[in-house]
């Protein structure tokens, strides 16, 4: 009974915390400058793209540097579809996700047979291929000139034209995807993923289809990355190949590592760092790439759980009041 009561109060507290977070989230843009809201919008876009990378790395042990490519596919698909073909925006966004998913499946089937170093370097090679193609396929991408005049998203006559308005589009999307990824993680599929990460041989015996699950998660991550890319294109309304270079791939990876690959909400923290840091450092010149690289090194060595893991540890320590969750005796 006491345990039940305790869990009920715990639920109450988390519920109240959620409401508080929600209120702060709704109110935030009213108190911030335009440039600060702009940073938060980018944080939202990067959270979405970073989620895919983080989940792949944390739950499947796949280091993916290819996300910049899928992000680019989403952006170009919607830019080309709306400006050249004149298709409706939602159709273009879905199209971008589909194209991304199909390419991810075609590439993923052979490439995901690799593991460890080979896999990571293969995804890096994919990112480079994507970048070169974005540059060379000028008739779609506009090459270095890029594509301009990408229309703003509007819903029921409401146009998401300013950072202030876009904030209320990108964050509900990001929250929905955070929730979806958490659901996935807690489902039997999520358990299967963690199982195959821990002991692939035993997972195979349990009937978990390892190879095809990896491809599916990769495809999902690519589609989510393309969605983020589409949002980006509609937000900035001009895109060029510079937005989809290797440093973008590094940025997404850094989001995952900093946020903590086992922590889904941690991604937001990682994304906030990656968007805010360059902004405040820009007066020092091109210093943020160096900062990102050093942050990646330091985080991998000293903070393997990322911000998310760090907070979870801290939370566990505080709530147990020094008591360690011990294994029961006997047996």
């Amino acid at each position: 009974m006491t345990a039940l009561a305790r869990s009920a109060t715990a639920h109450l507290w988390t519920g109240m915390l959620m409401v508080a977070v929600l209120l702060v989230w709704v109110a935030l843009p009213w108190f911030l400058s335009r440039s600060a809201i702009d940073i938060l919008v980018f944080t939202g876009i990067y959270t979405i793209a970073g989620l895919g990378v983080s989940f792949l790395l944390g739950q499947c042990g796949i280091v993916s540097l290819a996300q910049s490519g899928f992000y680019g596919i989403g952006a170009y698909a919607t830019a080309y579809g709306t400006t050249v073909l004149g298709l409706p925006i939602p159709v273009c966004i879905v199209l971008g996700m589909l194209v991304s998913a199909v390419i991810a499946a075609a590439v993923g089937v052979p490439v995901l047979r690799l593991s460890g170093h080979f896999l990571a370097l293969a995804t890096l090679a994919l990112a480079i291929i994507a970048h070169v193609l974005f540059l060379e396929l000028e008739w779609i991408t506009g090459g270095t000139l890029g594509i301009g005049g990408i229309p703003r998203i509007s819903l029921f006559g409401f146009t998401f034209a300013t950072p202030f308005r876009f904030y209320y589009l990108v964050w509900p999307s990001a929250f929905a995807l955070l929730l979806a990824y958490s659901l996935l993680l807690r489902s039997r599929t999520g358990i299967a993923l963690r199982a195959m990460r821990d002991a692939p041989a035993a997972a195979a015996v349990a009937g978990i289809p390892i190879a095809s699950l990896k491809v599916r998660i990769f495809v999902l991550s690519a589609a989510v990355g393309a969605f983020a890319g589409s949002l980006f294109a509609h937000y900035v309304s001009f895109i060029s190949v510079d937005s989809f270079a290797i440093d973008r791939a590094i940025g997404f990876l850094l989001i995952a590592v900093l946020g903590g690959v086992r922590s889904i909400p941690g991604t937001i923290a990682g994304a906030l760092f990656v968007t805010a840091a360059p902004n405040y450092l820009s007066r020092l010149g091109d210093i943020h790439p160096l900062l990102f690289a050093l942050a990646l090194i330091v985080a991998v060595i000293f903070l393997p759980g990322g911000f998310g893991g760090f907070m979870a540890n801290l939370g566990a320590k505080l709530s147990s009041g020094g008591r360690r969750p011990s294994a029961p005796a006997g047996g």
Binding site: A180, G207, R216
Partner: peptide, 21 residues
């Protein structure tokens, strides 16, 4: 969770179903 993973072959749902909740 180990045992839930052991039950894997009894289930039907996949990535997309779980993602959509």
């Amino acid at each position: 969770e180990n045992l839930v993973a052991g039950c894997h072959r009894h289930g039907r749902t996949g990535v997309l179903e779980a993602f959509l909740g």
